[in-house]
């Protein structure tokens, strides 16, 4: 599993994230650095960058060329959050969903995808009986040819874009998908399946070359 540490995890340094620093899943699979080290870090050893929902997007906007160059090398970027600055190629700014009832938070699968294989959509929609944690809006319109994985009623929340750049972007309009672990429900599968997807995606790209 040591090769999996070539995923760069930019730590926003926020209070809610403090447990990630010592969590074994994160430590074993990611290289964690403070978000403000991004402009200094050499990205050559990394195959994937994970951008967290608490990330400083003003800072990423300043360094958007570094992100674009990383993608042009055929690598993988994962962003979970609400985009308000255009630092991620092809990604529309976040629009919140109008909520009239908890049913407006219902998550559906558009296709069966390995990241969400075996994950019950009820478990994504509800947490301890409360709906709304998983996603609350969209980055629409999604790029042309994007593969939409999940939706809220009437809008995509989660997509993969392999066309805007030479790399692959997974964009989820919600909280950190890697945080779905150790809750004793089917969503626990997401963190490990997402990790596996990153490596499968990189392997398939290598196969294309």
């Amino acid at each position: 599993m040591t090769q999996l540490r070539d995923i760069l995890y930019l730590d926003p340094g926020h209070a809610f994230g403090i447990q990630n620093r010592t969590n074994s899943f994160i430590q074993e699979n990611f290289t964690q650095i403070d978000q403000y080290m991004f402009d200094k870090v050499d990205l050559e050893p990394f195959k994937c960058i994970f951008f967290h929902d608490f990330i400083d997007q003003e800072y990423l906007y300043i360094h958007k060329e570094k992100i674009a160059s990383f993608l042009e090398e055929g690598k993988v970027v994962i962003f979970c959050g609400h985009l308000f600055k255009k630092w991620l190629p092809g990604c529309s700014l976040f629009t919140p969903k109008t909520i009239n009832s908890f049913t407006d938070y219902t998550i559906s699968k558009v296709i069966e995808h390995p990241i969400f294989e075996g994950v019950d959509t009820e478990d994504m929609t509800f947490n301890k009986g409360v709906a709304g944690f998983f996603a609350r809006g969209t980055h629409s319109p999604v790029p042309s040819h994007a593969e939409v994985l999940l939706t809220l009623p009437g809008m995509p929340t989660t997509y993969i874009d392999r066309n805007t750049t030479k790399g692959t972007m997974l964009v989820h309009a919600g909280r950190d998908l890697f945080s779905h672990r150790m809750q004793n429900k089917s969503t626990d599968r997401i963190s490990t399946q997402l990790l596996q997807w990153v490596h499968d995606e990189l392997d398939s790209k290598r196969g294309e070359k």
Binding site: P12, H14, Y36, D53, F54, I55, D56, Q57, E58, Y59, G81, H82, L83, F84, F94
Partner: peptide, 26 residues
């Protein structure tokens, strides 16, 4: 902080009217 929730909250006009300045943390 430059994060998405702070961007929304402090730029919301009904709250921003009370704020003389947003100081970017860096």
């Amino acid at each position: 902080s430059g994060n998405a929730s702070h961007y929304r909250t402090f730029n919301e006009p009904k709250y921003n009217q009370y704020l003389a300045e947003l100081i970017y943390f860096p």
